[in-house]
């Protein structure tokens, strides 16, 4: 299962994406500012509750990040080992372990955001965040990245199957990379030129109509919590 939006009726689902982004950023800020046993102990309940508020379990959220886990474990281990007496440096290991644990908390909260926020909401938030022409184009371009990712993935997978079927897997690594990437790149260039024709045909404009974003009471509440967290980071 890849980390993606899941429809649901959690508390976080009902919030405005901007409020959720503020919460997420504030949480990361506090976690980085207070990487102490006490600070992280206080933040842990928040991070564990976050996936529940997005109708998911913390375990499922952790499973999304299994690729990062070896790196998180390696940090304290490498910090602990030293190439001379005293061989094991416990203090450095403890600092690195706290840092690793902090990342786990930040990842949990980030997963809760992704679970509870449809991408078009995020896109609207991007447009709101970056005003004017940059925001308009960035909003559309981000949407295009979402649209073309699966298409190019299947182009590359097909190309790879084709190369393997012709015994490409027996070739040296450099050749394999080149053969697969050339196919992907040729398709991508082709798709880009057709896309630009299609955009022009549909009057791609600097000022399209944005989807409505409305701040309600609970969004202000969430923003208040975010501000409080951010303030806690400064203490």
């Amino acid at each position: 299962m890849t980390l993606a939006y899941r429809p649901g009726s959690g508390v976080l689902h009902a919030l405005d994406p901007r409020a959720k982004l503020a919460l997420q950023a504030a949480f990361a800020l506090v976690a980085f500012a207070h990487t102490t046993p006490l600070g992280l102990a206080l933040l842990t309940p928040l991070a564990v509750v976050a996936p529940y508020l997005a109708d998911a379990s913390p375990l499922a959220a952790l499973r999304e990040f299994w690729v990062a886990l070896p790196f998180l474990v390696a940090g304290p281990v490498v910090a602990a080992v030293s190439l001379g007496p005293p061989w094991i440096r416990l203090e450095a290991a403890a600092a690195a372990a706290l840092a690793s644990y902090r990342v786990v908390l930040v990842l949990l909260v980030a997963a809760a955001y992704v679970y509870s926020t449809p991408t078009r909401d995020s896109r609207a938030a991007v447009r709101w965040l970056l005003p004017g022409r940059i925001g308009a184009v960035a909003g559309v371009a981000v949407a295009l990245v979402f649209r073309f990712l699966p298409v190019l993935q299947s182009d590359l997978a097909g190309r790879r199957d084709a190369v393997n079927a012709r015994l490409g897997s027996e070739r040296p690594l450099r050749e394999r990379i080149r053969l697969v990437a050339v196919g992907g790149l040729a398709r991508a260039l082709d798709r880009a030129s057709r896309l630009s024709v299609a955009l022009r045909a549909r009057c791609f404009a600097w000022n399209p109509t944005p989807p409505p974003l409305a701040y309600r009471g609970r969004d202000w509440l969430a923003t208040g919590v975010a501000l409080a967290l951010a303030a806690a980071a400064l203490i």
Binding site: Q24, V67, F71, V103, L107, V114, A125, L149
Partner: peptide, 20 residues
């Protein structure tokens, strides 16, 4: 904002603030 484009199909601000 949630496209699974980072290594291993991960996404979100978490990946940007994570170890790599």
């Amino acid at each position: 904002v949630g496209a699974p484009v980072f290594a291993g199909g991960s996404a979100g601000l978490g990946a940007l603030l994570g170890p790599y």
